[in-house]
Amino acid sequence: MAKRSGKYLYSIRSANGVLVENLQVYGKSRAEADEKIRQMYWRCEILSCKLVADLDTRAPNLKMQWVRPAPRAAG
């Protein structure tokens, strides 16, 4: 398992057989994310997991500036 921090998307089958999809969990690694899922859903079966947001590769630092809207003409 690779050590990649980020957001992981899971599909699981809970202990009582219910299919739960689109679970999103943050973790420093896939193993940590799996552990968090197993803490929330005891005795679950992990059907699929994929990395959806990699936190190791950060977006470029963007500078944002608020621009005041132009005044409306009376009329």
Rank of each mutant, 00 (worst) to 15 (best):
A2L: 10
A2R: 08
A2F: 06
A2G: 08
K3C: 02
K3E: 04
K3I: 04
R4V: 12
R4Y: 03
R4P: 00
R4Q: 05
R4N: 03
R4T: 10
R4S: 01
G6E: 07
K7D: 07
K7M: 08
K7Y: 10
K7A: 10
K7C: 09
Y8S: 02
Y8T: 04
Y8I: 02
L9W: 02
L9N: 05
L9F: 03
Y10C: 00
Y10G: 00
Y10V: 02
Y10E: 02
Y10K: 00
Y10I: 01
S11G: 00
S11I: 03
S11K: 14
I12S: 10
R13V: 12
R13I: 15
R13D: 00
R13H: 00
R13E: 14
A15C: 11
A15P: 04
A15D: 12
A15R: 12
N16Q: 11
N16V: 07
G17T: 02
G17A: 01
G17F: 02
G17R: 03
V18I: 06
V18H: 01
L19H: 13
L19K: 11
V20H: 02
V20M: 05
E21G: 05
N22R: 13
N22Q: 13
N22S: 14
N22M: 09
N22F: 13
L23G: 05
L23I: 15
Q24D: 08
Q24I: 11
V25L: 06
Y26F: 07
Y26Q: 06
Y26C: 02
Y26D: 10
G27L: 06
K28M: 09
K28R: 12
S29L: 08
S29V: 07
S29I: 08
S29M: 08
S29K: 07
A31I: 01
A31P: 02
E32H: 13
E32N: 12
E32W: 08
E32R: 14
E32K: 14
A33E: 01
A33W: 01
D34G: 01
D34S: 06
D34R: 12
E35M: 08
I37N: 05
R38Q: 13
R38K: 15
R38M: 09
R38A: 01
Q39A: 14
Q39M: 12
M40S: 12
M40V: 10
M40H: 13
M40E: 14
Y41N: 12
Y41H: 15
Y41P: 08
Y41M: 10
Y41D: 10
W42A: 13
W42K: 15
W42C: 11
R43Y: 06
R43S: 11
R43N: 15
C44K: 01
C44S: 11
E45F: 09
E45M: 13
E45T: 14
E45A: 12
I46A: 04
I46V: 14
I46N: 00
I46F: 04
L47E: 02
L47I: 15
L47Y: 02
L47P: 00
S48M: 06
S48C: 06
C49W: 04
C49N: 12
C49D: 12
C49R: 12
C49P: 04
K50D: 09
K50E: 11
K50P: 01
L51N: 11
L51R: 14
L51E: 07
L51H: 11
V52H: 05
V52T: 15
A53S: 07
A53G: 00
A53P: 02
A53K: 13
A53L: 07
